[in-house]
């Protein structure tokens, strides 16, 4: 029986959290088919401890292609290496993260190895008789859930949104095999060079991977008012998001944009203020675990999707929430 693979991700030698989330998804599928789960990692300077953690979090095997030229993600080389591994090991299923690299790499690989790919799956399962991967994803703005499979091609490939599953607990007794592989020279594509990296301001919005996102909409009135939300987000170690209206007005830059024309997110907690809730915005937050909305208009669409809503003036409500959260913190500190 061929294996289930997950594509782990690293940045500067450190594993990204999404690598472990993928393993918890992959574990279920591998168990259902009674096969092995393998994590595949491309990179450089990754410690043994990190590789071991992949085992502790659910992998039976780890393939690590270790080369300094794989330190940065470059799709051409990554795609060559992964396609080569696929041809060699013939995995049954591959799960990758719906991140900037996963979303770039996987469609490229799908063409190279001639198989299907389903983006942004929210549910994955194995069809009993055929062992086909059943991939369910929201389509048309979350209005329908489509279940997709790849009946006649192999491997079965899907990308999964970050934060849409929890990593398995660290189990230090788990045993597994770590295989280090060398980069084959002929797979290196020298055409694209990474010549720099620009980190953004301290509050760069990695809204797709954040546990808590605090977003503002048109009702925030102006950019300066986002200080209120920044403070609120800080209480949760969350990051700032914004509706399209707010981004269009230049109050926050595009990486913060939540919704169909921005990012689709699945945080544990989504708090939004002054967001009316266009269909497009709602489609982007539907898979959040909890949604809290604060809006002046009791008929605002956002309340239909909220687990908790406050109808009121956000300029009164948010400062009070901030004050109460700060008071709690102080009390706990005492």
């Amino acid at each position: 029986m061929s294996h289930v693979w997950t594509i782990a991700e690293q940045s500067k030698g450190k594993l990204r959290a999404v690598s472990f989330e993928l393993l918890s998804r992959g574990r279920k599928l591998a168990d259902k088919m009674g096969t092995k789960l393998c994590a595949v990692l491309l990179g450089a300077n990754v410690s043994d401890e990190s590789l071991q953690e992949l085992i502790y979090r659910g992998a039976d095997e780890v393939y690590f292609v270790d080369d300094h030229r794989l330190e940065n993600f470059v799709v051409e080389t990554y795609s060559n290496v992964l396609s080569d591994l696929i041809r060699q090991y013939k995995p049954h299923t591959i799960l990758a993260a719906a991140t900037s690299s996963g979303r770039t790499l996987m469609p490229h690989v799908a063409i190279q190895v001639t198989t299907g790919l389903t983006a942004d799956c929210t549910e994955l399962d194995i069809e009993e008789e055929t062992n086909h991967l059943l991939q369910t994803r929201p389509a048309i703005g979350g209005n329908i859930m489509a279940t997709i499979k790849t009946p006649n091609h192999s491997p079965q490939m899907a990308t999964v949104r970050p934060k849409s599953s929890r990593p398995l607990a660290l189990e230090r007794t788990r045993q597994g095999k770590i295989t280090r592989l060398a980069l084959k020279e002929e797979l290196l594509d020298p055409r694209v060079q990474v010549i720099g990296y620009r980190e953004d301001t301290e509050e760069f919005a990695n809204i797709e991977e954040a546990e808590v996102v605090v977003a503002g909409g048109k009702g925030m009135k102006k950019a300066e008012n986002f200080t209120l939300l920044r403070e609120l987000a800080s209480h949760f170690n969350g990051v700032l998001g914004a509706s399209r209206d707010a981004v269009d007005r230049g109050w926050l830059p595009y990486p913060h944009q939540v919704g169909l024309s921005g990012k689709t997110i699945s945080p544990k907690l989504y708090i939004c203020a002054g967001v009316s809730g266009s269909i497009q915005h709602l489609a982007g937050i539907k898979t959040s675990e909890y949604i809290v909305a604060i809006n002046q208009d009791p008929d605002a669409n956002i309340f239909r999707l909220a687990d908790f809503g406050i109808v009121g003036n956000l300029f009164e409500v948010i400062p009070l929430i901030n004050a109460k959260l700060a008071a709690r913190k102080q009390k706990e500190g005492e």
């Binding site: 940045s11 940065n72 993600f73 470059v74 991140t99 900037s100 690299s101 694209v192 060079q193 990474v194 010549i195 720099g196 990296y197 620009r198 980190e199 953004d200 760069f204 990695n206 797709e208 991977e209």
Partner: peptide, 8 residues
């Protein structure tokens, strides 16, 4: 990308 801009 997730935490900044990669220059290619």
């Amino acid at each position: 990308v997730e935490d900044g801009y990669q220059i290619l």
